[in-house]
């Protein structure tokens, strides 16, 4: 247990000793570009009413998932709230089933029963997309509880927005996660706005990582627009959790370029503020590193972009051509008991 938890630790944000090689940068670039292109398409399709329901885009925040994926194993667990398109992509779930889910099709990753807010993939250890702000925080601690109970060394990444930090569920889960030293890493995606309300207007504590210090949880503020800093912070936290030393809190400072949901015109913030963050775009900065180090030629980069565009187009085609769930699906997946006597009259 570190003794320094009571003060802000800069270590995670300033450390530059870890060298990332070509493979890592190319992985980050491709992954983030796929998330970005997928969601840009999602936004267009939403406007065309091909995708319905609530729809929350991750655009601008991609470095969080990309950096965390390179710092974890595929058998680790991930859970998040309803801004949940990027996390399953990061886990490795193919975008066909994510797009099909957005289209409410039976081939979707939740069989068309979840939609944008409820992506799930047991195969890729993605424990879902949850719609009640903060509800996923005790669930994440519980997933970690089970792994500790079973004596394996898997860790759980539990993502949340900055709005969730003011929910009571967080505080109860933080206390028990520390008390029982659960292998969970709480990641705040602090894009500074809970829907339309800024952190400053709803929280007496503006540096949200400080919330963890009250529970003596190792807590750090991290540049979330940068894959390198995210990777390093998550790596440190993962190592701590795997050793059995318990949870960490990582406040990732990030930004969403789009509104809270598709219906949000984001009038509560200035254009200049959005532009300022776009200058720190995680995909652009990874691309700059790739070009500077000549990890890929322009032609190769062009080929990657074309490949991803084609993948996204293919996912749309797959979703378009997939059938809606048959009405007979209505009474399936509610109970494990196959002959549950539903009231039907």
């Amino acid at each position: 247990m570190e003794k320094t938890v009571a003060k802000k630790t800069k270590e995670a944000t300033t450390k530059t000793t870890t060298a990332f090689g070509k493979d890592t940068y190319m992985y980050w670039y491709e992954l983030m570009l796929l998330m970005r292109k997928f969601e840009e398409k999602t936004g267009q399709l939403y406007v065309q009413q091909k995708i319905r329901g609530f729809c929350h885009l991750y655009i601008g925040q991609e470095a969080l998932v990309a950096g965390a994926e390179t710092a974890t194993r595929k058998d680790d667990r991930v859970i998040t709230a309803y801004r949940d398109h990027a996390h399953p992509i990061g886990r490795g779930l193919g975008i066909n089933s994510i797009m099909a889910e957005l289209y409410a099709k039976s081939t979707g990753c939740s069989k068309g029963k979840g939609g944008s807010m409820h992506m799930f993939s047991k195969e890729f250890n993605f424990f879902g997309g949850h719609g009640i702000v903060g509800g996923q925080i005790p669930l994440g601690a519980g997933i970690a509880f089970a792994d500790k109970y079973n004596g394996n060394d898997r860790v759980t990444l539990c993502y949340m927005g900055d709005g969730a930090v003011r929910q009571g569920a967080l505080h109860e889960a933080f206390n028990m996660a520390m008390l029982w030293k659960l292998p969970v890493i709480f990641i705040i995606e602090n894009n500074n706005y809970a829907m339309g309300t800024s952190v400053e207007r709803t929280s007496n504590v503006h540096d949200l990582y400080k919330i963890g210090l009250g529970y003596e949880m190792p807590s750090y503020q991290v540049d979330g627009m940068n894959c390198e800093t995210v990777h390093e912070a998550v790596s440190v936290a993962v190592a701590r959790a795997r050793k059995g030393d318990g949870p960490s809190l990582l406040e990732m400072k990030t930004y969403r370029y789009k509104g809270h949901s598709m219906s949000d015109a984001a009038t509560y913030r200035t254009k200049a503020e959005v532009e300022e963050f776009k200058h720190k775009d995680p995909i652009e900065s990874v691309l700059a590193t790739i070009k500077k180090n000549k990890y890929a030629t322009d032609k190769e980069l062009e080929a990657i972009e074309e490949k991803i565009k084609a993948q996204v187009e293919e996912s749309v085609k797959f979703a378009e051509e997939s059938p809606y769930p048959d009405p007979s699906e209505l009474y399936k997946d509610v109970y494990v008991q196959e002959d549950y006597p539903y009231i039907k009259d």
């Binding site: 667990r77 519980g142 997933i143 970690a144 509880f145 206390n175």
Partner: peptide
């Protein structure tokens, strides 16, 4: 609220 949620998470993960 916290321990009910932790228990549900544990059940999702095999307990």
């Amino acid at each position: 609220l916290g321990f009910a949620g932790i228990a549900v998470g544990a059940a999702m993960n095999g307990l």
